[in-house]
C-alpha cells in the first residue's frame, strides 16, 4: 500500500486534467447560460462562436510569432487573446443585428431562435473552415510544463511523476480571474444588476426603465469574451480543430443544464461535475488501485468503467439523470 504514490497518480491523471477541462467547460457553459437567461433560448451556435474567437486568436498569434513578439515563458496566444475577443465581439454583434434582432422584435418562440441559431452554426462553421481549414492547428509556444513528471520524480524521490502543464495552469488561473470579474460585474455594477433584473423579470425590468437592447448588447459582448477565452484555453490545452468545438456543445449544454439553465453559479458547478465524471469514468484505475490495494487484491484488468470513446455518453447520462429527477438542475435554474 502506498497512498502517496496513489494520490500523485490520481492527481496527475484525474484531478489536474479534470480541473482544467472543468474550467473550460464552465466558461463555455457560462456563455450558454447567460444567453439563456437574457435572450431566453439555447444557443446552438455557441460551440462555433468559440471556434471563431479561437480562430481569430490563432491568426493573431501566428502574426505575433512571425513578428517575433513574445511573452515567453507564457504562450503568445495570451497576448493575442484580447484581439480574438474583439473579433468575436464584432461577430456576435453582427449576427445579433443581422439575424436575432428581427426575431426578438417579432417575439418569436424560443424554438424558432434555436433553429435560427442552427443556421448561424452552419454559417460560422463554413467561415471558420473557409479561413483556417478543417485541420488541426498548432499555436502553442513558450514553456510546456510548470512541473514536468521527471523533475517532480527527481525532486520528491517518488515513483509516480506529476506533470503540471503550463496550459493547465493558465486555464485554471484565467478561469478563476474571469469568473471573479464576471460575478463582480453581475453583482456590483449598475449594468450587471440591470442584466440580472432583466433575466429575472423582463416586464418589471422594462417598467423600471432598463433599456432591453442595451442589456442584450452587453450580454453578447460578455458571451463573446467568455466564448473566446474558453475556446482559446481549450485549443491551447488540447488542440485547435474546428470540428471539436461543435462536439463540445454537448458537454457544455450538459454542464449548463446540470447546474440549472440561466444560473451562472450552476454553470460553473455543472462544468466541474461533468468534467470530473467524464475523466473518472473513462480513466483506467489499474495504477491507482495497484498502489492502494494489498498486493493479492491488485486488479488484473484496466479497471476502466467505460472506454474513452464514450466520454460523450457520460455527459449525456448525467444530463438524463438530472432531467429525470431534478429538471431545474442542481442550483435552481429558470427552466421547467
Amino acid at each position: 500500500m502506498d497512498f502517496l504514490n496513489a494520490f500523485i497518480a490520481l492527481s496527475n491523471f484525474v484531478i489536474i486534467p479534470a480541473v482544467a477541462y472543468g474550467s473550460q467547460l464552465a466558461l463555455g457553459a457560462l456563455g450558454v447560460t447567460l444567453i439563456y437567461g437574457i435572450l431566453r433560448f439555447s444557443n446552438f451556435a455557441h460551440g462555433d462562436t468559440m471556434a471563431f474567437g479561437a480562430m481569430v486568436t490563432v491568426l493573431v498569434t501566428w502574426l505575433f510569432q512571425a513578428q517575433g513578439v513574445s511573452i515567453a515563458p507564457l504562450p503568445t496566444a495570451l497576448l493575442a487573446l484580447p484581439f480574438g475577443i474583439l473579433g468575436c465581439m464584432a461577430l456576435v454583434l453582427l449576427t445579433d443585428r443581422a439575424v436575432y434582432r428581427f426575431y426578438r422584435a417579432q417575439k418569436a418562440k424560443p424554438v424558432i431562435f434555436v433553429i435560427v441559431s442552427l443556421g448561424v452554426t452552419f454559417i460560422l462553421n463554413g467561415i471558420v473552415r473557409f479561413i483556417i481549414g478543417p485541420d488541426d492547428q498548432r499555436f502553442l509556444d513558450g514553456e510546456r510544463f510548470i512541473v514536468s513528471a521527471r523533475t517532480f520524480r527527481e525532486m520528491t524521490g517518488l515513483r509516480e511523476g506529476l506533470a503540471f502543464k503550463t496550459t493547465q495552469g493558465i486555464t485554471i488561473v484565467t478561469a478563476v480571474v474571469v469568473v471573479i470579474l464576471l460575478f463582480w460585474f453581475l453583482n456590483r455594477t449598475r449594468t450587471g444588476k440591470s442584466m440580472r433584473a432583466y433575466s429575472d423579470n423582463e416586464d418589471l425590468a422594462l417598467l423600471s426603465g432598463i433599456n432591453p437592447e442595451r442589456v442584450v448588447m452587453v450580454t453578447w459582448l460578455i458571451v463573446a469574451a467568455l466564448a473566446t477565452t474558453a475556446g482559446v484555453l481549450y485549443g491551447l490545452d488540447k488542440s485547435f480543430k474546428p470540428f471539436t468545438y461543435f462536439q463540445l456543445l454537448l458537454p457544455i449544454f450538459a454542464s449548463a443544464i446540470v447546474g440549472g439553465l440561466g444560473n451562472p453559479l450552476g454553470a460553473i458547478a455543472g462544468g466541474f461535475v461533468i468534467a470530473f465524471s467524464e475523466v473518472t469514468i473513462t480513466y483506467a484505475w489499474k495504477k491507482v488501485l495497484g498502489y492502494v490495494l494489498p498486493e493479492n487484491l491488485a486488479p488484473d484488468g484496466l479497471v476502466q468503467l467505460l472506454s474513452t470513446d464514450y466520454k460523450f455518453a457520460v455527459s449525456f447520462l448525467i444530463l438524463l439523470i438530472v432531467l429525470l429527477f431534478k429538471p431545474t438542475g442542481l442550483f435552481k435554474g429558470k427552466a421547467v
Binding site: 424560443p110 424554438v111 454537448l250 470513446d309 460523450f312 449525456f316 438524463l320 432531467l323 427552466a335
Partner: peptide, 24 residues
Amino acid sequence: KTALGLRSDYLAIATLGIAEIIIA
C-alpha cells in the same frame, strides 16, 4: 420517454446527445 414533456430545448439537446452516442 425521458425527454418529451420537458421544454423543447431539452428534447433538442437530448436528441443531439443520443445521436452522438449511437455513432460512438
